[in-house]
Design a binder for these strands. Sequence first.
DNA 1: AATGAATGAGCTTTCATTCAT
DNA 2: GATGAATGAAAGCTCATTCAT
Lengths: 215, 215, 215, 215
Amino acid sequence: MTSNKTRQNLIDATERLLRSHGLAHVTTRAIAREAGVAEGSLYHHFSDKAELLHAVVQYSMGDFRHALESLPLRVGQYTVRENLEHMLQAAFDFQFKIIPITCSLFADHALLARVREILSKHCIGPARSVEALAAYLQAEQRLGRVAVEISAQSAAELLLAGSFHGAMFDQFLARQVGPEAVRLRLHETVRTLLAGLTPRSPEEAPIPNDRKGAS
Amino acid sequence: MTSNKTRQNLIDATERLLRSHGLAHVTTRAIAREAGVAEGSLYHHFSDKAELLHAVVQYSMGDFRHALESLPLRVGQYTVRENLEHMLQAAFDFQFKIIPITCSLFADHALLARVREILSKHCIGPARSVEALAAYLQAEQRLGRVAVEISAQSAAELLLAGSFHGAMFDQFLARQVGPEAVRLRLHETVRTLLAGLTPRSPEEAPIPNDRKGAS
Amino acid sequence: MTSNKTRQNLIDATERLLRSHGLAHVTTRAIAREAGVAEGSLYHHFSDKAELLHAVVQYSMGDFRHALESLPLRVGQYTVRENLEHMLQAAFDFQFKIIPITCSLFADHALLARVREILSKHCIGPARSVEALAAYLQAEQRLGRVAVEISAQSAAELLLAGSFHGAMFDQFLARQVGPEAVRLRLHETVRTLLAGLTPRSPEEAPIPNDRKGAS
Amino acid sequence: MTSNKTRQNLIDATERLLRSHGLAHVTTRAIAREAGVAEGSLYHHFSDKAELLHAVVQYSMGDFRHALESLPLRVGQYTVRENLEHMLQAAFDFQFKIIPITCSLFADHALLARVREILSKHCIGPARSVEALAAYLQAEQRLGRVAVEISAQSAAELLLAGSFHGAMFDQFLARQVGPEAVRLRLHETVRTLLAGLTPRSPEEAPIPNDRKGAS
DNA sequence: AATGAATGAGCTTTCATTCAT
DNA sequence: GATGAATGAAAGCTCATTCAT
């Protein structure tokens, strides 16, 4: 059996370099040195550089899937707010990690096309995440815990867009945002979307806010 | 003064190539051919390739400002929904265009760092857009046309994130989405955020689904 | 003793690849796969790749000897034309087969030099074939069946050159020439050399064009 | 205008290396060093290595074409023997020079296929030479200087095959054959083909031989 | 200012060979 | 004997940059 150790070494090394230097500087030479193997070894485990990069993308997707898969179990459990914040935190962590990688792909449309193919073949990718979250929201709509008149699809998009946008520009602008600040930002995002921008009539029960108690 | 014609030629050619082929294949030779000038000419107008790319990014960033600048004039005018949809459409068009370019920058962190500098020096970039939109929302909050208990900052982020996320994955997945479908998607985004996910109490009038009228 | 089976496997596989793909693409990996053994096994039977190629050439050179060895037995038997056509057909078949292999050797002069050594050590090769055919022609000259004023050496060279040239350019130009067309070509070659280009004096019987009987 | 000096430099250097070391050792690195230019320069004048090799083959063909083109002018002039010897000498010089190059091509079938294409597109190559010589012989047949009963095509093939075979094996066996010995060999080749192997009837005029006076 | 040939470092990939299992 | 992962030198080729014209 071919040892998976060198293979994993290469994937990890590539991910590290991708994050720290960007695709353009992630050469096979650099990867091999970072992984501590010979350059030729790369081609025993991957048919070419694109296949290695694809493996990195696929590998990086692992963490987020668990959060998505646990969503159906939370329907009707905890509060909607808690569930959304929990999911959004997982989304953010994942997005923050893969943004430098997936964005790099725009630099090489041939590579981008290849990754696209793989995503669609494996039925993964951003569209799938939106779908999973929308399904959760619809289930909650049926339970009356989410307003029925909004579009679950739109709401799911907005939520994931919110964390994605934050992750994207933390990376793009090299903003140093600590985990607590991120948590607060996501909390506000969820609170805002739960409340909506339309002013409530006075007699209506205010949105409960365990943080600030806005009456 | 150095002829601005060749200079602009080069910037336009580079932008076109960047959009259609990705940073990795935008070579100085390809740029020169696309611009119809000699390869060496590039170095009469830009000290190196990075400076040219930097000029392209700077140039591409100029477009969105008009829509943002018109926002204060709309405070209290039209409906909030109309204003937000109008702004979001402008945001989307802009984002869709620059995403292939700005994302490419992640391939070269040195270049990315240089662009960051420009952004902060010129006080432009995504943070500025969020700020302008948040200011508008706060003004509307003062007029009672937007709920006071939500965070204008969060709401502004959510809106721009919504259009950005759509633009990003239309590009990433090479989705063919027509302008009408985009308009509909943005309409739904605004409607959802206006309504919020929290169910309204029975006696409250539901959010109407048609375009005008939510008084 | 090392198993001759794997060894022969490797030689056969290499010969097949050499013929179908050319020396440049006959890699040790390709040979091993074609032979159905591990890449490393090659080095249990041959000290290096050159020695394997050398074995292939040596092995491929064995075939033509039988036709040459039967020549002395045909002196004075059948017609000269029949004997020459018979020999030329055998020569062509052999040459057509080994041309892709021996020509490949020009790509590597070091290998070529090694093969030269074998040829001279084993007293085989093209010079030996010419010699054997010339000896046959001299024997026929003594019997009066071949003109005495021509050079047997030159005639032998011309005959073998004729079939070789045909084989070489059928291969070089990838000409699809069926066996019947080859036979006809060789028939014409022999007829032309038998007749000679010099016009015969009028009272002399012209060379008949049919196969048998030129008395 | 692009200077042809570097281009010719590269062609000459490649030809020299091809002859002295064989295709396998003719690397772009070696060519550049031999030509005294940078490796990258090669790609300003040729789209890739194959195109350079093709240029070498084409360039090497130059000398022989003149001999072929002068053939029609010699119809009915000098003696047939003189004309054939003259043409065969030019053929040999040409063949001796290009054999290491063209044979090398068998090592890389992809390259071979490309050269084949070029040859057929430009209507050059070995078939064309045979054709030109056959046309000359037919013209002489009409003048009665060549026997009408032989096939001009076969005779032309035999002549060119004769010089080719000699050149091929001088190269293959690294035989040191001086120019005088080559001339003698070609002289004998022509004499043998002119005479034919069929014994002449006694009363017939002997083949005139200005060299040995064979009665 | 404009040109484009020349440069050479650096890229991805191949491949004969070794060696621990 | 057999295996195949690992090696690293070297292959063909690209490309930002320079410079004589």
